Amino acid sequence: MLNVIIVDDEEFARSSLYFLLQENCENVHICGIAKSVEEARTLLNTCEVDLIFLDIAMPGLNGFELIPDASSLHARVIFTTAYDQYALKAIKASALDYLLKPIDIDELKAAVRKAENLTSEKGKDQNHAERLQTLRGSLSDRMGIRKLSLANGQGYTLIDVDEIIRIEADSNYSVFHFNHRDQITVSRVLKEFEEILPDDQFVRIHKSSIVNLNYLKEYNSKNGLELLLKNGEKIAVSRRRASIFMEKVKLFSTSSGEK
Rank of each mutant, 00 (worst) to 15 (best):
D55P: 12
S140C: 05
T81M: 01
A34E: 14
T119D: 09
A90E: 00
L108Y: 02
G137L: 15
A87T: 14
D125S: 04
A82D: 04
G63P: 13
E107Q: 07
D50H: 11
S71K: 04
L96Q: 11
S36W: 09
D97K: 00
S138C: 14
D141K: 09
L88P: 03
A90I: 06
I30H: 00
S138D: 12
Y98H: 12
D55F: 09
L135V: 13
I33H: 06
L54A: 05
I33T: 14
D125I: 04
A95N: 04
L73C: 05
S94A: 15
L139K: 05
S138G: 11
F64I: 15
R136S: 14
S94H: 14
N62R: 14
L132V: 09
S72C: 02
E121D: 12
D84K: 09
E130N: 14
Q85H: 13
L139R: 00
A129L: 10
Q85K: 13
L118I: 11
R41K: 15
L61C: 15
H74G: 06
L66N: 02
E23T: 00
Q126D: 06
I52H: 04
L88I: 12
K89L: 08
D69H: 09
H74W: 04
G32H: 10
C47W: 03
A110C: 00
E116G: 11
G137N: 11
Q22F: 08
A115S: 15
L99A: 10
T119R: 04
L118W: 05
K92Y: 01
A95E: 10
I105Q: 07
Q133L: 15
L100D: 10
K92R: 13
V49Q: 08
I78E: 04
D141E: 05
K35Q: 13
K124E: 03
H29N: 15
N62K: 14
S72R: 02
A34D: 15
N127K: 02
D55R: 05
A90V: 08
F64V: 15
L132F: 02
A70G: 01
E65H: 11
A129R: 06
T46H: 01
N62H: 10
C25K: 05
C25V: 04
E65Q: 12
L51R: 03
R76Q: 10
D141R: 08
A90L: 06
L73D: 02
E65V: 12
A75F: 05
H29G: 11
H74T: 07
L44E: 11
A87G: 04
L118K: 07
M143K: 06
E39L: 09
S72G: 02
L43K: 03
K101S: 11
D84Q: 08
L73S: 07
D69Y: 13
Q133C: 12
K122Q: 09
D97Q: 02
K101T: 13
E23D: 11
Y98L: 14
D106K: 13
C47N: 10
L99R: 03
L51P: 10
A82P: 02
T134Y: 06
V49T: 10
I103Y: 06
K101V: 12
I56G: 08
I52G: 07
E121C: 11
G60N: 06
G63K: 12
D141F: 08
I52Y: 01
C25I: 08
E65T: 07
I67N: 01
A82C: 04
E26W: 01
V77H: 00
L54G: 09
A115E: 07
A95Q: 04
D104V: 08
A87S: 14
H74M: 08
L51M: 07
N127C: 03
D106Y: 13
E121V: 13
I52Q: 07
